[in-house]
Design a protein around this nucleic acid. Structure first.
Length: 259
DNA sequence: ATGGTTGGTTCCCAA
């Protein structure tokens, strides 16, 4: 089962690039972030003929997440549990059954800039709430995949120019500590596990020729529960997508599970 | 230290 995460930075702007990647990469399940669309205005027609079941959790203008799957999407949960007053669409869960059942959680973790400030407070509170949700799901002992844009640069080696991010919400010590707390629950960072070391980026800013200079950062992650990590057979970043026509500023990251 | 670009919306904000 090939499972991917892709922050598309606007579903309507990616009406050509996203289907083109799906045809080439043939993922079974995809977690999309930043659809920037409501459920009502989501352009389902761009996926016609590609064979995906689709669930969306959108909002107007900003954020918004979705799951695509060649298998039916079961037991869907929209919104990160733990704060009924939170109106930002950043979390969606569903179970897919291939040869085995896997629960997929798609997430768009808050950016948090500027830090310090209320946006950074929201980021840290959201990460604490995610930790509680991960803990609850781990008790099921199901294979779990947490796929998304974490807006976290976990270590210095995950940025081409780490000094440029020293005071940024994506890299502050408190951000990295909160990310490590997730890992310490028992999750495996699939890419770090299989391809340790520097130079593996998933985001290049549109500005200042970041792509041409390979000034990238690794902020899109696939974290696996122990039962999912046992099934991991491959991991990759589809870097070439960044050089295509009308690209997102993020590229897809994917894993293959023996499931 | 600053600037630079894109998307969705709107008389700029978020990233």
């Amino acid at each position: 089962m090939k499972i991917a995460s892709f922050n598309i930075n606007g579903i309507k702007a990616r009406a050509e690039a996203l289907p083109a990647w799906l045809k080439a990469a043939e993922p079974d399940v995809v977690a999309l972030q930043e659809i920037k669309s409501t459920d009502e205005t989501f352009p389902h027609e761009i996926f016609d003929g590609l064979g995906y079941h689709i669930v969306t959790h959108g909002q107007k203008s900003f954020n918004g997440v979705a799951l695509l799957s060649r298998f039916p999407l079961e037991d869907v949960v929209c919104g990160l549990p733990g704060d009924a007053s939170d109106e930002q669409a950043r979390w969606i869960e569903a179970t897919v059954v291939g040869r085995r059942a896997v629960r997929i959680c798609g997430l768009y973790l808050p950016n948090g800039n500027p830090a310090p400030g209320p946006k950074y407070d929201y980021k840290l509170a959201w990460m604490a709430r995610m930790r509680a949700r991960v803990s609850a799901l781990l008790k099921t002992e199901e294979p779990l995949v947490f796929a998304g844009d974490y807006n976290v640069i976990p270590q210095e080696e995950d940025a081409a120019k780490p000094e440029a991010w020293a005071t940024d919400a994506l890299a502050l010590p408190e951000t990295r500590a909160a990310f490590r707390e997730l890992l310490h629950l028992g999750l495996t960072d699939a890419l770090r596990d299989r391809v340790p070391g520097p130079g593996h980026y998933t985001f290049w800013d549109y500005q200042a020729g970041a792509w041409q200079r390979n000034n990238g950062i690794r902020i899109d992650h696939l974290l696996l529960s122990p039962q999912a990590a046992d099934l991991l057979t491959a991991v990759g970043i589809d870097k070439e997508v960044r050089g295509g026509d009308k690209p997102s500023d993020h590229v897809p990251i994917w894993i293959d599970l023996d499931a």
